[in-house]
């Protein structure tokens, strides 16, 4: 019942990798992600997918079932996108290796489009998993610390934090309504589901706006003047982590280049 967003945050705060320098984690996750996106190789994407998943499940201690559930979120979008690459429509049947004829046009798949789709799929999934590895091990305030040190403008950081907080207020409001409804026998039967859901949707905006307003009043009352300040935390740097990232990435590049020769 607990919403996914909150569980991601929970894992980030409880993660055994929490105290690893967030800069190192960001470097590891983003550099690997960039490599995956830059190199159009299914093998490289597969390796990164494997390595990141292992880190998430073994080192970060995220439960396997939950990780798969998280993957299911982008998977839906990904599959739709890949279908569009996989199939195409043409007036010539000769364009395709496999096709069906619908009226005057041919809908079909060619070997090229098949490999394109597979590549797109693995590449995107690997990139998503790189980001998951970051957000499942790093609390938001650590990421903000690094962004601040990198000189990201205050307005962007402020927006990020406020939006992040408001997502939680929103989800919590939805969760409260949901529990209140279930306790009075909501969501049962087809009509019941529609009615409960419509009431939830129509009242969620008012309720979450009120929650957000209350939170804002709480900030104003403590002297908030439009700019958030954050405590700069001290993290322990480990050269080993940077070295491991560089070695992994060099390895990936080598595999990629040797595969092309």
């Amino acid at each position: 019942m607990s919403p996914n967003v909150i569980r991601i945050d929970h894992y980030a705060y409880m993660s055994p990798l929490r105290n690893v320098h967030p800069g190192e984690k960001i470097f590891f996750s983003l550099s690997t992600m960039l490599l995956v996106l830059a190199m159009d190789s299914i093998l490289i994407s597969g390796i990164v997918l494997g390595v990141m998943s292992l880190i998430i499940v073994w080192r970060a201690g995220v439960k396997c079932g939950y990780f798969l559930k998280l993957l299911a979120i982008p998977l839906g979008f990904l599959l739709l996108g890949c279908l569009a690459v996989l199939f195409s429509v043409s007036s010539e049947g000769a364009d395709y290796d496999y096709f069906i004829k619908v009226g005057a046009v041919f809908i079909g798949v060619s070997v090229d489009s098949f490999w394109n789709a597979v590549q797109l799929f693995t590449r995107s999934l690997a990139a998503v998993v790189c980001l998951y590895m970051l957000i499942l091990t790093t609390p938001i305030n650590h990421i903000i610390c690094i962004l601040q040190r990198l000189g990201v403008p205050a307005i962007i950081i402020n927006l990020m934090v406020l939006i992040y907080n408001n997502i939680f207020l929103f989800v919590r409001s939805a969760d409260e309504i949901y529990i209140a409804q279930v306790s009075r026998y909501g969501y049962h039967g087809w009509v019941g589901q529609i009615r409960s859901l419509s009431l939830l949707c129509s009242n969620l905006l008012v309720k979450s706006l009120k929650a957000s307003n209350d939170a804002f009043n709480g900030m104003i009352s403590r002297g908030f003047d439009g700019e958030l300040k954050f405590v700069d935390e001290v993290f322990e740097t480990k050269a080993g982590n940077i070295a491991a990232t560089v070695i992994l990435n060099c390895l990936l590049i080598t595999i990629y280049l040797s595969g092309r020769v």
Partner: peptide, 30 residues
């Protein structure tokens, strides 16, 4: 759910409709 009713500690967690009547009748319609 008909036989065991629960009133939450915080009424804001329980009342979700904008209208009092609608909120009270929610369980009946269910």
């Amino acid at each position: 759910k008909k036989r065991v009713g629960i009133v939450f500690q915080n009424p804001d967690h329980q009342i979700f409709s904008a209208s009092v009547k609608q909120d009270i009748s929610f369980g009946l319609f269910n």
